[in-house]
Structures are given as structure tokens and as C-alpha cells.
Design a protein around this nucleic acid. Sequence first.
DNA 1: CATAACTATGATCTATATATCATATTTTTG
DNA 2: CAAAAATATGATATATAGATCATAGTTATG
Lengths: 82, 82
Amino acid sequence: MNHLARTPNDIGNALRHARKQQKLSQQALATKSGVWQETISKIENGSPGTRLETLFDLCAALNLELNITERTVGSTDFLEDD
Amino acid sequence: MNHLARTPNDIGNALRHARKQQKLSQQALATKSGVWQETISKIENGSPGTRLETLFDLCAALNLELNITERTVGSTDFLEDD
DNA sequence: CATAACTATGATCTATATATCATATTTTTG
DNA sequence: CAAAAATATGATATATAGATCATAGTTATG
């Protein structure tokens, strides 16, 4: 699983995808992460002002991490380049 | 270049590293990205409240993107540099 | 080592994220 | 379909990010 993100919306999609894969409701994730369900809803819908701290709380609860790389060409899913 | 990030501090380090590699001053990056030099300073030093929007403005200016993946084991850097 | 370039700090102001509660809306499922 | 579960919305209050200006430290360099 690798989601490319260049916008808050991409982040929201990636988080929602991971959460569903782990069969957690927003409320269950809220409990795990300490972030409120209402806040998770907004973030999954692409809230641009989401704080890094909050994002990392969610990443930790979902066992995710970020990787910062040079931009690749192409689509939302991972693409290897030379 | 690939920086793993699990904390706002990791993000700050990755951004600073990329900026220096591109031989940009904070002021030059500020001009390119529309984010203020003072703000860039704070972010590079790990400001936890950094907004996603601001992060992505900087990523765009530095030609970076994020990849969201399952957590790996190991250290902050993997793969080569330069 | 002087000074120019760069980075950090600090203040004020406005905008907005998040906590929190309540509830509306949508989706799932028996 | 109806009930239940899940998600979204909306309000209020508090905290803080970022714009902005000024300047203090720090680092680089002729």
C-alpha cells in the first residue's frame, strides 16, 4: 500500500483507505488516536488546515508513516522511476 | 532522496535538507512558495501545528511529494542521497 | 574580523483547527 | 423497509498558525 499525496485531499483519501482496510470506524479510530470523530471526518474530506500533529496521531494509530521524496510523474499510486 | 517522517520534526529536517540541496535560502523558498521566511524557519524546526496546506505549498516549491505507506522498521533514512 | 547573508525570535492581528456536545444525514444490514 | 451504525454538520470556546514588521542572533565569506 502506497499512496502518493500532493494535496490535503490525497491525504484524506489515503487515511480513509487505510482505516477501512483495517475495518475501523471513524469512532474506533478516534478512540485509538485521541483525535475526535468529527475531526477525522473533516480530515478525510480534505481539510487543508489539518495540523501535522493531528496527522501524525492518525498515522501512528493506523500504523502509517510518511515518506518525502522527489516528485514522480504520473498517477496517485506508486510509480517507480529511474 | 527519501525521508521517512513520523513526527513534525522529521518533516522539518526533510524540508531543510531538500532546500539546502537546491541551494535555496529560506527567503528564496519563501518567494517561490508564498510561505513566509519566518514560517519556514518554524516549520524546519519542527512546529507541530504546521498546516497541511502550508506543507504542500513548500513541497510543490521544492518539487517534493509525500508517500503514505505502512510503517517500516528502521531508521529515518533509507535509500541513497544526492 | 568585519560585514553581508541567513535564520530565529518576538509582537500583534486575523483566521481557523480542534475539542466538545448535539443532531442531522447517509450507509449498512437484518 | 426499518432500525442501527456510521458519518457529516453545526454551534461555541479556546488555542495557535501564519501574515506581517522589526530586529536579534548566527553563519559564511571577502
